[in-house]
């Protein structure tokens, strides 16, 4: 069994754990766990491992941002939230877990239908994992009521798209300037969402997205 398969299986596990989490803190921990795993994937599927290369440096930077910095910002936001710290799902935890399993099956089916020839290690699990992560991100965006869980859903969606990029794009197209730009956008985006979250919390005493009902036609 390849090392990358173990990492991808752990990402599958993190998806299911995030769908089943009932406490916000637990959800943030799961996201941190996933943020550590995702940057490892491109290194593990590279033809050969070079410890002192630019790709390793970039992966460690990404690990620092996705695994440490962003979860830390979410944790700070969590600390400031008033009493209710449950996730408050619109769709229950068991139903979410079943939906997660269905998503995994569906993505395996889709990936097998695409007939993409890829002669890299981890190829059998990489694409299903990427598609499931995207699906689970959308699921968290829609099926959870708190604004903070929507940020987490967005992060997971972004992780999924990053994995898709790793699966689909060849290494010839990797420019670290470009990838750094994406990462910077993500970081600033989460920071701004965190600021808005703080405002929402001080204005409404809660971060329930039910507040999003004033503006309409």
């Amino acid at each position: 069994m390849e090392l990358v398969d173990i990492v991808l299986s752990l990402i599958f596990l993190s998806i299911l754990m995030s769908l089943g989490s009932s406490r916000l803190l637990q959800l943030i921990r799961v996201m941190s766990f996933q943020g550590v795993l995702v940057p490892l994937v491109p290194i593990l599927i590279a033809p050969q491992y070079q410890p002192m290369s630019l790709s390793t440096a970039f992966a460690s930077l990404m690990l620092l941002i996705k695994g440490v910095l962003i979860p830390l910002m979410l944790w700070v936001a969590w600390r400031k939230i008033a009493i209710r710290r449950e996730v408050e799902p619109l769709i229950g935890y068991n139903a979410s877990l079943i939906a997660g399993l269905a998503m995994i099956l569906f993505s395996v089916f889709i990936s097998s239908q695409l007939h993409l020839v890829m002669d890299r290690p981890g190829s059998s699990l990489l694409l299903p994992c990427a598609i499931t992560t995207i699906g689970a991100g959308f699921f968290l965006l829609m099926a959870r009521r708190k604004a903070i869980t929507q940020i987490i859903g967005y992060l997971m969606l972004e992780n999924g798209i990053y994995l898709t990029g790793a699966a689909l794009a060849g290494h010839a197209q990797t420019h670290y300037v470009v990838e750094f730009g994406i990462l910077l956008d993500l970081l600033v985006g989460v920071m701004i969402m965190g600021i808005i979250l703080h405002r929402i919390n001080t204005t409404y005493d809660d971060i329930d997205t039910a507040f999003l009902k004033e503006l309409k036609d």
């Binding site: 701004i192 808005i196 929402i200 999003l212 503006l215």
Partner: peptide, 8 residues
Amino acid sequence: LEATWKYV
């Protein structure tokens, strides 16, 4: 506040 959240 609501508009910005939706926008972002």
